[in-house]
């Protein structure tokens, strides 16, 4: 049995904003009955101010899908379209006091319905389906969606991607594809810079330079993804670091360390070895 918060239960049993607004200015439909959940969002929009004056939903799905739909409509009512678009799936999940991790895709569906409705209002065309690369054929999830949701939610494992997008949750044949996408997003990328040829450094200078590179180049990138690291020791060319925060449980840890090593070799010395210690 799912561990739903009392807020999810409350909004599932007593949903708000159910139905369709009359003569809607915007309609967003996402999901399908085959996939097991679907959401139709209708909006009334004040054309002068661009404010959402009313929002209603119809949802086919489980308790968390229905509660997420109420959360979405409650959050966006009274907001301008631009402000509404800033609402993330995390905001929806937070409104509900959190969702079980396997159910995060319900919050993503809410956010998608909003985007679809706004695009519908603005007369923007949906990206042509034929042009999108569908990665997960069971649940028709595109590479674009996987990238977007993974970056927005700092997803680093296939399991997380499945929880948030359903991709990979069917036959599983797209799992290597998802792994490749994640690797592409999260490996510490080294910008092709002109190699700075390291001079002969004293030990003290070397340690200072290593600290400098870690502080200015590596840590900000890790922190952007919710991770961090700490310099433990420098012994000759052996640099001991400890991964912190999100990096600790991150299966890409090995890749991260490799990336750090490359960077230090480039700037400090080609003999640098980075170890986790």
């Amino acid at each position: 049995m799912w561990d739903y918060t009392s807020k999810v239960k409350e909004l599932f049993l007593n949903p708000k904003n159910v139905g369709e607004v009359e003569n809607p200015d915007a309609v967003g439909e996402v999901g399908s009955i085959v996939c097991g959940d679907a959401l139709k969002l209708t909006l009334k929009i004040d054309k002068e101010t661009g404010t959402i004056t009313d929002a209603k939903f119809q949802t086919f799905g489980c308790a968390s899908a229905i509660a997420s739909s109420t959360a979405l409509t409650e959050i966006i009512k009274g907001k301008t379209l631009d402000d509404a678009l800033k609402v993330t799936n995390q905001d929806i999940a937070e409104y509900l006091g959190g969702l079980p991790k396997e159910k995060m895709h319900c919050s993503v569906m809410g956010r998608e319905a909003l985007e679809a409705a706004v695009a519908n209002y603005r007369g923007e065309e949906k990206p042509h389906e034929a042009e999108e690369r569908i990665v997960c054929k069971c649940f028709e999830v595109s590479e674009e969606k996987i990238r977007k949701v993974a970056i927005e939610n700092h997803l680093t494992t296939v399991e997380e991607v499945t929880n948030f997008t359903k991709a990979g949750g069917g036959c599983g044949s797209c799992i290597p594809d998802i792994e490749a996408i994640l690797k592409d997003i999260w490996s510490v990328k080294i910008a092709p810079e002109k190699p700075r040829i390291p001079k002969k450094l004293t030990n003290l200078q070397k340690i200072a330079l290593i600290q400098d590179v870690l502080e200015k180049e590596i840590r900000p990138r890790l922190q952007a993804d919710g991770g961090d690291l700490e310099l433990i020791d420098v012994d000759g060319n052996k640099v001991s670091i400890a991964l912190r925060a999100m990096c600790v449980a991150c299966p890409m840890g090995g890749v991260t360390i490799k990336g750090i090593e490359e960077k230090l070799r480039e700037i400090v010395s080609k003999d640098i070895v980075v170890v986790e210690g």
């Binding site: 239960k9 599932f12 049993l13 009955i33 086919f60 489980c62 308790a63």
Partner: peptide, 13 residues
Amino acid sequence: YVEGEAILLRLNE
């Protein structure tokens, strides 16, 4: 046209 988990949780009530 309705989803099973939703039915079960309502029955659960």
